[in-house]
Design a protein around this nucleic acid. Structure first.
Lengths: 198, 198, 198, 198
DNA sequence: TATTAATCGAGACGGTACGTCGAGTCTTTAC
DNA sequence: GTAAAGACTCGACGTACCGTCTCGATTAATA
């Protein structure tokens, strides 16, 4: 059971930060969130599971929520997507989110991490930073390119488009507790594209 | 300061449930959520503020999250809206949500209550029941009417439309922590209507 | 199980104190003390067991400890004892106490009641009143008679003699938690008598 | 000293038990018992007074009664006593108890602690262990010496003698709520000695 | 090579809150 | 008027975590 937490077999302890310890903590966070959710998440349990000291956790992360966000957002990894139509450029940006939410375990982890972020200022900043680099910036580039090529109107509002692309995920994840079907991101992208097409 | 909690000056309670106590608790929940948010929300503080016993709280509400949802959703009250265009029938349904989110205090309260619901099964059920009666059913009636009158296509999916109408609120409320501008719900309704128009 | 609490079959409820209710409460106190001891004794449990209202209990007894003493001391009933020797007159006074402490259940009840009395001023007064009428006064009469008949010295101190006759019971009951053997009171009486004999 | 098996006895990692905390708790227990008695004794109050955490109290003492016994029995300290007569050897053993009960404050504390012990199995064991080492064993040594020197009969029963020496204290402390006069232990010792003298 | 300093595990500590239980007060309803 | 039933406030229970701290062990960089 504990074997998955790699650093346990390690002997090194010294004046350099232990990557093994870091990895074990992040993995333990994900496992705890998947098993128990955000409500009964506790630093003590993470430390016990990772065979790490609470001190080590508090030393390297500014808040518990930030730790959760840090541990979880890596689940939304860049994934290859086939691009056949113009609107697939939009879909490509939110496709990793759909992918992550197809996994039940990852769904639990992400929901918990996003709740943590909504509850904790530092974690919120970390989340918004992620949104900026992973969603907003790529989205802006795609939209700028399309409008430059006169494929879409020029008067788009990036925040409204993000609302339209991301919001439906949150409505299912937080409010309705209903699953994300396959093709969800493609459908969203299509609708947004229709709205923008000249 | 405590004078606002009416039941304090009220005559002693009897063997039937005390409405005064109930109201004081719900008001205290709202005040606590507005003042301290969900993170540092505690039953002890609510009980202290409402001059109520924790036992009374636990007796009448199945979970803390459910108490928060119960206390908060009344903030999204039915409000009059001028109906000039066809799409205003859609806007009318989410207009109360926008209205509530124009108030900073109510925004805190609602965010906290929705977080509580996302974290707690019983509270989630209570929230979804509210969505069903306040959003889904009215929305279905409006859409059915419009499609009967051949104003919109007949092949609408109610869940996707709810995603499009509600999701943007959650993206600003939970994720981006950005304000809801005036006219937000009208804009959403317009976009959805365009998509559905034959 | 509940059948033993007589008042349950009763119908009369009116402007006279219900003896059936009183008896049911006293019996329930004894049963509770026997089953759960003084530590986890509670008025709620007594009321539930006796199918009585807490209000009735608080109405008729000045304190919970007093209720326990009231309920329990009747277990130390006057019992016949053969009187062959002069010292048996002393033994006769404490013999009912020994008798009660030969019963395991009654031992629990009495220990609990005496603890209650040690902890509660009103119950303590009730206990001391009982000691006065059941122990001190009879003892003084016996001793006065014996000293008048010049069987014992005249300079006895009633309190020290009570210490010598009762104290050993308490040492076994409260401190050592050891049993009271048969003949315990007779042995105590013999020793006291030896000390007093001229 | 650094033998090859040294690692077996290697000391535990981490902080050591705080003596300051321990002492503050024990003092707070004595103060609480003196001020409020056993009836309204509470762990919360002890923790508040000692500026200690309840967790710390529950960690180091098996039960609340045991904590009271632990905090209180040290009040019965060994005290010098002049030994002029043979029976003073007996008096010497219970003299510290009399001394403690001359102090009003210590009387409250000890009564409460002994009540706690009578009510709680673990505390009772702790008390009986104290009786064994502080009363029973010394008493046995004195009695054995006296009977070896043919000063007293050989057929003494140690438990009965303890009853005679300790019981009178309990009768005054728990039942009669009457004071312990000076010379009480000497008088008890004299009576017991008379009874044993050959 | 020995010393220093950063790091880690373990976990004790003062606190705050949890969810439950009981005390004692009060009100309603039934007889 | 008395009693059963039970809702209410208050406060304590024993447990769980939080975030801080200290202790002893380990190891890399410095002296």
């Amino acid at each position: 059971m504990d074997g998955q937490y790699a650093h346990i077999e390690r002997r090194r302890q010294g004046p350099k930060r232990s990557d093994a310890s870091r990895d074990a903590i992040l993995q333990a966070v994900r496992d705890e969130l998947a098993d128990n959710g955000w409500r009964s998440f506790s630093v003590d349990n993470v430390a016990r599971r990772a065979r790490a000291s609470k001190q080590t956790i508090y030393k390297w992360w500014p808040s518990i929520g930030a730790l959760c966000v840090d541990a979880s957002l890596c689940l939304i990894q860049d994934r290859p997507v086939e691009i056949n139509r113009i609107e697939d450029h939009l879909a490509h940006i939110i496709w990793p989110l759909e992918q992550a939410l197809h996994s039940t375990k990852d769904t639990y982890v992400l929901r918990a991490a996003l709740l943590a972020a909504a509850d904790d200022e530092k974690a919120g900043e970390e989340l918004r930073q992620w949104v900026k680099t992973e969603i907003r910036t790529p989205l802006r580039m795609v939209l700028a390119d399309l409008s430059n090529r006169k494929t879409i109107h020029r008067d788009w509002d990036i925040d409204s488009i993000m609302d339209a692309l991301l919001g439906p995920f949150w409505n299912r994840l937080f409010i309705m507790n209903s699953p994300i079907p396959r093709g969800f991101s493609a459908e969203l992208a299509t609708q947004v594209f229709k709205k923008l097409k000249r």
